[in-house]
Write a protein that binds this DNA or RNA. Structure first.
Lengths: 324, 324
DNA sequence: ATAGGCATTGTAAACGTTTACGTAACGTGC
DNA sequence: GCACGTTACGTAAACGTTTACAATGCCTAT
């Protein structure tokens, strides 16, 4: 049997209360002598605390639940890394619950699982919640925060890039390079996509361009490959890709179709992961600070001060050419 | 306050035992009538079970702990996906504990955390354990299984590709294409690396080639970039890369140095993730079945029948040329 | 001497479940 | 009418901690 504080108490001739106080560092409530004695016995017995029991009596787990889509997004590791690190600094553990791939049932299940454990906060990364999930979360009175998704309202916590500004920046950048026929590829139909479309529209409108060319997708490489064909007849000279993977898909499809990038077609990618460096040419990108997004979301959900939007950086590589 | 079974019991005029029996589906121990009554009350009260309490009394959590390196390996999502799915089928939840980046302290901490929760099994993905970790795990009497790492002995559970065979296959493939000066790039100095080196050596020796060219690294893109320069003076005509990222690094460094792939240098990559399709040319790879590795490791750690080695597939793309 | 304060420890209840055991009611077969 | 089995349910202990409260001993100031 695994030793408990009871065993330690018996072995060292004190009560379990004293053992508990020493082991949970309630300094000032025990003498150095008993501390030493208890610590020695604990070590000798190979004692390991039972977190389950602690959580039961405290009615609170020092744990943040991260619910995440199973979509193999290449940035998720950076987000997780940021969350993990910051949580550790604040004395919190992290458990990750996978929500399948846009599977409403699994997503719901993941939230319930988190709720069953009395976690100190719930983080939802790259998740688009349905109404039911949202009420479930609200009624639970457990703080929750969306990560890399901004619901368009400050009423629900979120940490994300400012997608509208991001898309506007990308569009402006292309406009500044002389492009006037600019496409937007691979955006989704939810919050993130809409915000990016809005920014794209706004930037174009500011220069009196009404023509917009928007193709929806799912952020995947395949999505990018397929979408290129749809842009071809539309005479765009530049495309903003909704993710690095979409950009890579567009790029490779273009090369196969004999279209040179950036000579005949400019590409700006959104995300800025390693993928951008791997392709030929390397992809100019709006690089999101995923690590920071993750770290900040921890602060947010635990009630520490932190901003909703994390700045984005434009990184010039080799996929955009000046025209006109 | 969150409602408990006590509240349900009071509300429906039965004992908490009966409520518990209904709620935990101990079929045959209650009448349909009471079941209906209790379920109704539970729903009305918005009851949610307290997993912590359940785990405390059962002394067992229906949870598998996955300890994983924070190294942004692009295959980890596939492994996690496999684990998650299979665990779900077996009624187990998954919590992921990040172990930092080859940080012995954090790694140790992660194991302790898992042990504190009485999990049903511990999975260690891409982790090279030190002696201390190993004894800690062994003494805990919690089943554990290494994922994508084979310690070279069947005494400790593992699910992995057969690295020796994998490397031999890659080498043979290159030999069959006429290459005789073959390099091996980016392998580590631990189990995985040694096994691959052994396979590489064995395949070469089988054709009476004694010359080996091995460069160590850390599986990263940067690692690949740097390593190319070291191979240049050695006149190899083909290189086996220890990961897709290393291959991408080699490829791009080669292109920058004016060396055409595959015309002047052939490349075989190990892993076979999406990265292989993104580069130009696409990378011929020994593709590991990470999803299966993950899924099978769950079976393994829970005591179900499953093999240690998961087959690897050679996928021909465009980075190898026949010579001689 | 006495009261008060402080340091240290012990007692016992509480957290929300599960489950072994006991019991009552109700047939059923004889 | 009796023994017995079955069904349905209740009682109470247990899981391993934390912590409010009480108790003890000792020191100090009066």
């Amino acid at each position: 049997m695994k030793p408990t504080i009871k065993d330690i108490a018996a072995e060292s001739g004190v009560s379990i209360a004293t053992v508990s106080r020493v082991l949970s560092h309630k300094t000032g409530t025990y003498s150095e002598k008993t501390q030493a004695k208890i610590l020695a016995v604990a070590k000798r017995l190979g004692y390991r605390k039972n977190s389950t029991a602690v959580e039961l009596v405290k009615k609170k787990a020092a744990i943040i639940a991260l619910i995440i889509n199973a979509t193999p997004t290449n940035f998720s590791t950076q987000i997780i890394d940021g969350i993990q690190r910051r949580a550790g600094e604040l004395g919190q553990g992290v458990i990750i619950l996978y929500a399948g791939n846009r599977n409403a049932e699994l997503q719901h299940q993941a939230i319930v699982t988190a709720l069953e454990r009395a976690v100190s906060g719930i983080l939802l990364a790259a998740i688009e919640p349905d109404a039911e999930d949202l009420t479930l979360l609200k009624e639970s009175h457990v703080p929750f925060c969306f990560v890399s998704v901004y619901l368009g309202t400050d009423k629900v916590l979120a940490v994300s890039s400012d997608n509208e500004k991001l898309a506007a920046t990308a569009t402006d950048y292309l406009l500044d390079h002389g492009h006037t026929h600019i496409g937007l590829a691979g955006v989704d139909t939810y919050h993130t996509g809409s915000q990016r479309i809005a920014g794209y529209r706004r930037a174009l409108a500011a220069r009196d361009i009404q023509e917009t060319t928007i193709k929806y997708g799912d952020y995947s490489y395949e999505s990018g490959r397929q979408l290129l064909a749809e842009f071809l007849p539309l005479k765009v000279t530049a495309i903003i890709a909704a993710s690095d993977m979409v950009a890579a898909g567009l790029l490779n499809a273009a090369q196969e179709a004999g279209i040179a990038v950036p000579e005949q077609l400019s590409l700006v990618s959104i995300d800025g992961t390693d993928i951008c460096r791997i392709t030929t040419p390397a992809l100019t990108s709006l690089t999101q600070d995923f690590y920071q997004i993750g770290a900040q979301s921890v602060d947010r959900v635990l009630g520490e001060a932190a901003a909703t939007f994390v700045p984005v950086k434009l990184v010039e590589r080799g996929s955009v050419k000046r025209v006109g």
